[in-house]
Amino acid sequence: MGTTMTDGLSHLERLEAESIHIIREAVAESERPVMLYSVGKDSGVMLHLARKAFAPSPPPFPLLHVDTTFKFSDMYAFRDRMATESGMELLIWRNPEAERLGINPFEHGSSVHTDMWKTEGLKQALDNWGFDCAFGGARRDEEKSRAKERIFSIRSAQHRWDPKQQRPELWRLYNARKAPGESVRVFPISNWTELDVWLYIHRENIPMVPLYLAAPRPVVERDGTLLMVDDDRFPLLDGEVPEMRSVRFRTLGCYPLTGAVESTADTLTEVIQETLLTATSERQGRTIDHDASGSMEKKKQEGYF
């Protein structure tokens, strides 16, 4: 009987093969693909898979970083290093409107900041270069509404997602066809869990931003959240003095919006160990999902990745 089960392959090998297959299909069926690179661990796994998919050729598409100007400085350094190592072109987009208005999380709040730099910025970047296919590192286990999103997700010319018009995905057959102006967002690691990502990083020895490992860093504590004072744009409140504490980050984003956890885990295996022993779900550190129940779904319909 023709099942897809395979004797010899481990679950990581099957996930890897599935992702490689997806990346190649997307490239074969689109005109101008691009990979969104956010510098985090999921992006790192996705980039690694892309390189494996096309070796010995470099992946036949550029990397795109939609910058907010507030990422950790370590992230910028790591981003540039990975672009050089992979031999891929790195495109950087900063929303000119946000730049002109000087949008920042301190004065404008996290939601305006994210919306202007990330959501709007992403749409502008895709339009600017005319990409018709963008790879993203989202996983279905991250959030309830993502569990139902397809791997190939068609977006209108206005970048909107219509959950009622999703195409059924059967077997290994993905339909990436689209009308002019429409684009497709492709999520090659949809079926990976956080544990899979960590196991794969360990197995393949994938390079990671040092921020994932614990080190003494200057932080202040606000409303129970540890924030790193990464540069002098961080406005200290009266009486606030940054102190050096051993911390690491579970997810990476804009430094003023990303909480650190106290930790001494300074090797990858220790981080994995600590992560698995910690019973709080991954996205708790990200402020964006707390707004309202179903908020991610609303953001996605508006074009958030």
């Binding site: 279905r140 286990d141 309830k144 509404s145 993502r146 569990a147 139902k148 959950p163 999703q166 059924p168 949809s190 079926n191 869990t193 544990l195 129940s293 179903g294 779904e297």
Partner: peptide
């Protein structure tokens, strides 16, 4: 399990959802 808001209100699942456990 329920994912999309409209479905949650209707109290039924109307699509394929993928879940992971280990």
């Amino acid at each position: 399990l329920d994912g999309l808001e409209a479905e949650r209100e209707q109290g039924i699942t109307i699509d394929v959802a993928y879940r992971y456990f280990s």
